[in-house]
Design a protein around this nucleic acid. Structure first.
Length: 273
DNA sequence: AAAGACACCTGGGAGC
DNA sequence: TGCTCCCAGGTGTCTT
C-alpha cells in the first residue's frame, strides 16, 4: 500500500474537508474488510459526532473525535476520496462517511484495509507498540543502532518492521538502502555506526521527498482528488530490474527477501564493504 | 524469542 | 481470444 508518504498525502488532502465537520450518516456496503466492521457500533459512535482533526500515526489515519478515534488503514489498495454527495458508488466502494456538503468514500479492491473504532487509541494494541515516526527526532542513529544490534535479519526487513521504525514499506526500504549504499541483504547487526547513521538520513530524505511529490502511484494509489502521486518518476531502484543504475550504470538487480521483491545496484550496494 | 512461511483478496499482465 | 500462473505500496498469525 500506501506507505507513509501516501498515507500522509491522503491525510493532508482530507484534513481541510473533515476537520470540524459533523458526520451526517455512515453507509457500509461491505463489512468484511481486514477486520469485520461492527456496523451498529460504528453508526452509534460516529453519526452526529464532530471530527475534530485528522492525524496520522505510522500508516494509520486517525480521525479524532471528542470521545474516541476512528482508525483507517489503507492496506494495499485502499483509497479515500472526497466526492459530491450524489456520486454513485462503484465496485469496491465499501464505506461512505457522509458529511454536510460532501462524502468521504473508502474504496479498497483487495480489502486488506481496516476501519476500526477505538475508545482508547493510545493503548490499543495496534498502536501501542509501534516504533518512532521516521520524520521525527525520535528516529535517530542511536535508536536505530540499538534496534539493529538485536537482530541479524536482512537490513531491509528490519527497516520494514513497524516496531523498529514505522511507515517504511517495500518501495521506500529499497530506495533508502540505495541512497545509503547498503546491500538489502546485509545482516542488520553487521552495519557500522556510520552505516546506521547513513540509513537514518536516507530514510528521512527519501520519505520527505516522496511526501513532497504526493507519494508513489504504482497502479492503485490516488489522492483524495483522485490523482496519482508523482514520486514514481524519482524511484532509483524499485521496479527497475535490468535498467541501468542512475549513479553508475550497472544493471539494477532484483532479489526476494521475506517474500517481497527487493531491488538494488550490485555495484553501489556491495554485500561486503 | 526470533525468523520464516502463509494467509487474507482482487485484478492486471505475461506467457502459452 | 482465452486460459493459467505470477505478481502487487501490508500485516496478523501460525509454525519452526
Amino acid at each position: 500500500m500506501p506507505e507513509l508518504p501516501e498515507v500522509e498525502t491522503v491525510r493532508r488532502g482530507l484534513q481541510q474537508h473533515v476537520a470540524g465537520e459533523i458526520i451526517q450518516d455512515l453507509v457500509i456496503r461491505r463489512a468484511n474488510l481486514r477486520y469485520p466492521l461492527d456496523i451498529s457500533l460504528l453508526q452509534a459512535k460516529l453519526i452526529n459526532q464532530t471530527i475534530e482533526r485528522l492525524e496520522r500515526r505510522a500508516k494509520y489515519l486517525l480521525f479524532q473525535f471528542k470521545h474516541g478515534t476512528l482508525l483507517v488503514h489503507l492496506g494495499m489498495t485502499g483509497v479515500m476520496r472526497v466526492l459530491d454527495l450524489n456520486r454513485a458508488p462503484k465496485q469496491h466502494d465499501h464505506v461512505d462517511i457522509i458529511l454536510k456538503r460532501h462524502l468521504i468514500r473508502f474504496n479498497d479492491t483487495r480489502r486488506f484495509g481496516a476501519i476500526l473504532w477505538l475508545d482508547d487509541a493510545l493503548h490499543h494494541p495496534l498502536l501501542a507498540r509501534l516504533g518512532p515516526e521516521p520524520l521525527s527526532a525520535d528516529f535517530d542513529k542511536d535508536h536505530l543502532a540499538i534496534k539493529l544490534q538485536a537482530t541479524r535479519r536482512p537490513i531491509k526487513l528490519a527497516l520494514m518492521d513497524q516496531h523498529i521504525v514505522v511507515g517504511v514499506g517495500n518501495i521506500y526500504a529499497s530506495e533508502a538502502l540505495f541512497q545509503a549504499k547498503i546491500h538489502p541483504q546485509r545482516p542488520a547487526n553487521s552495519l557500522t555506526a556510520a552505516e546506521v547513521a547513513a540509513v537514518v538520513v536516507a530514510v528521512k530524505t527519501v520519505l520527505e521527498k516522496a511526501v513532497l511529490h504526493g507519494g508513489t502511484s504504482l497502479k492503485d494509489f490516488l489522492n483524495v482528488e483522485g490523482r496519482p502521486g508523482y514520486f514514481r518518476h524519482q524511484l532509483k531502484v524499485y521496479d527497475r530490474k535490468n535498467e541501468p543504475c542512475m549513479d553508475c550504470g550497472t544493471l539494477i538487480e532484483k532479489m526476494v527477501l521475506g517474500q517481497r521483491a527487493s531491488y538494488f545496484c550490485p555495484q553501489c550496494q556491495k554485500e561486503c564493504q
